[in-house]
Design a protein around this nucleic acid. Structure first.
Lengths: 200, 200
DNA sequence: GGTAGGCTGGACCAGCCAGTCCAGTCGAGC
DNA sequence: GCTCGACTGGACTGGCTGGTCCAGCCTACC
């Protein structure tokens, strides 16, 4: 697929994806039109359909993948080496900062919701993202275990799952209420409960 | 507003709201049309605009309010009297059951997202819902305090906020991955961390 | 320097769907 | 039983938007 793209073609394709991502960070999928994307990327409709023959959904899916990659990248390098309590706190700050800045928009969320079950592969994007995210958290907890900071019998999977869910909900509440209180609470509480587990 | 509605008129208006809610539980807002709602409620377009002069958005907002009321109602009577550990566990089961049955659809979520900032009042619906939900949780935690099951110095607000965020994220993950693991994990972990706080 | 095929521009089309309009019915109160 | 206004039916419209088509440009490769 797209093997035959020249360097110029690839550049244009990327420009479309990034431009579309920019558009979708400003307006909701249900409102954004191909014309918006054309205007923002200085492309014509034929180019859009040239690079995404299946049409709008294929383009949106590509944007969703692009955004999903961004989510974890934005948490690096912290998320990748959660091997001390200090590292956990730095990561916490990074997450709060990232989502406070992003504000009320959730391009990836609306995208996947919009594509929904009609577009095969849309769900996979978010499922994969969540799995990776959770794995990173689990790895971090295990790192604390091997560092002797946490007891070996801790249920790592459950902790990681609960933490991930908390973050998602915190972000959701940040986006719907405009306040980061919940996100902060869930991270603080999650980490301090983890620390407390160390003492027992 | 709508003071002058006769009994018949009120009945029709309610039929429209409930019918629309049923439609939106099956298809996403972005796909559902007024024709779908007409078909499902046996009404004509002029009736829709008679009862909701502002058009589709006004109708959707009414549906959103209707759905929001449902959310807390579905958690009763458990959510209302979280005054023992047993009550908390019964409530937990109820929540998991409710959202497992609901499956992947989240009518209220898509509705509010769809109405977004363009419709004043849409955000309020979800903000109010979340505030009430959180208050119920906080009341439950305080009930445990007065029952002597939890220490008085516990940060009730933070616990309630974190728990609410966890639930929202758990539901989100249930809807996007199809598995209830996260919701269960966050509730189990949340309640057991609370219990552990009792010991310390 | 020629040519095949990737790349680009933009006019055009067709379907969908919210919203309008008007003609007609029903029913409560006088 | 009359009348006024609430209520209902359904045809019509106008704008929007995803998608198509074709004609022409650019460039890598021979």
């Amino acid at each position: 697929m797209h093997k035959e793209l020249t360097a110029k073609g690839r550049a244009t394709r990327n420009r479309i994806i990034e431009g579309a991502a920019a558009v979708l960070r400003e307006k909701d999928v249900s409102v954004a039109t191909l014309d918006d994307i054309m205007a923002h990327t200085r492309t014509s409709k034929s180019q859009l359909f040239h690079y995404f023959p299946e049409g709008k959904d294929e383009l949106l899916l590509a944007v969703a993948r692009h955004e999903a990659d961004q989510v974890l990248a934005d948490q690096q390098p912290y998320l990748g080496c959660l091997d001390s309590w200090e590292a956990w706190h730095r990561w916490r700050d990074q997450v709060v900062k990232r989502y406070t800045e992003q504000g009320e928009r959730c391009p990836l969320g609306s995208l996947v919701l919009h594509l929904g079950r009609s577009t095969p592969g849309a769900r996979d994007v978010v499922v994969t993202l969540m799995r990776r995210w959770e794995e990173n958290l689990a790895t971090g907890i295990r790192a604390l275990q091997t560092a002797g900071q946490l007891p070996a019998e801790l249920d790592v999977e459950q902790r990681a799952a609960a933490l991930l869910a908390g973050i998602q909900g915190g972000v959701l509440l940040l986006q719907s209420t405009g306040r980061a209180d919940h996100l902060r609470a869930v991270l603080d509480q999650g980490i301090s409960d983890l620390r407390r587990a160390a003492v027992i």
